[in-house]
Amino acid sequence: MMESLEEIKARIQAAAPGVKIDIVANGSPSQQHSLLIDNEHAVGIAKFLRVDPALRLDFCSNATGVDWLDRTVKKTVKVKKLVDGEEKEVNETIEGKIPGYLEAVYHLYSITHKHGPVIIRMRTADRTDGARLPSLTPIWRSAEFQEREIFDLYGVRFDGHPDLRRILMWDEFQDYPMRKDYREPDDYEWEPTPHDEVLEKAKQHYPPRPAEEELKPS
């Protein structure tokens, strides 16, 4: 039985004090919680996870990207306020802004001990110039192509990657198509049965006749 994420976190921090690790809880039925490791020490932490005799996470089965746009989070806080001359506790909603970032997620297994997965995440500073992460390819060679794919589709630059090029799209391509704000080129032609987003496109390209608009019930 593999040790829990809390124990792993405690052991890493005991081995290397000053390393920042958070546990990202997963609320879904799978309950696959993950370790959010800090970019500066990521390679060291990865090495620890790989060579530690109790863990021996020698197999990186999957590396993928996640795009997080800017979001606003609403929080309800109880605030004491003067209402009609007397002090009362009032619920107040505070809007917090979380700037967007890109994330790389690695799923690690141990073939020696037959356990896993341990999921680690890294987050970039932002979604534009700061979209850089340390590459974990020197630790797990199987991450090479998958990091290239993350670079290709999400635009995360991996420092220390031996061969960071586009892998699926052509070299001249400039967009990052898996990002949530990616807009594909407007090459709508014709669709026999448009619906949803395609219907919106169809309306732009084939505006309805004015007579039809009048017929519509207002």
Partner: peptide, 11 residues
């Protein structure tokens, strides 16, 4: 040819 966003020309 391979363009910046799509094939050129698209058709």
């Amino acid at each position: 040819t391979f363009g910046k966003h799509d094939l050129e020309p698209p058709g």
